[in-house]
Amino acid sequence: MAKGTITIDERRCKGCELCTTVCPKNIIHMATTFSARGYRPAILVDPNEQCTGCLLCATICPDVAITVYREIKPKATTPSTTRNT
């Protein structure tokens, strides 16, 4: 399974929780603290490195707050899934 991770821009997140509903690993949770804009932002809680970089959270995020990274495989033969080529 590919390894990946995400970063969530707390300044953009409005705490709508949609990313938490689509994450297949259930590793996105809502913070208990408030952001500067007064929302409880989503945070990644992934101590076991379960994130695969599947893009579902970033796809559904209405505020484009999520950036997704995926581990490069040394012998990758499949084309890159990078959005812009």
């Binding site: 300044r11 929302y39 209405p62 505020d63 581990e71 899934t81």
Partner: peptide
């Protein structure tokens, strides 16, 4: 790690006024 999803260039950096 390589970036596989990032903020599009054609969106301005600001935050939208839309509801959560």
């Amino acid at each position: 790690m390589q970036t596989v999803f990032d903020y599009p260039d054609a969106l301005t950096p600001g935050v939208t006024h839309y509801c959560p």
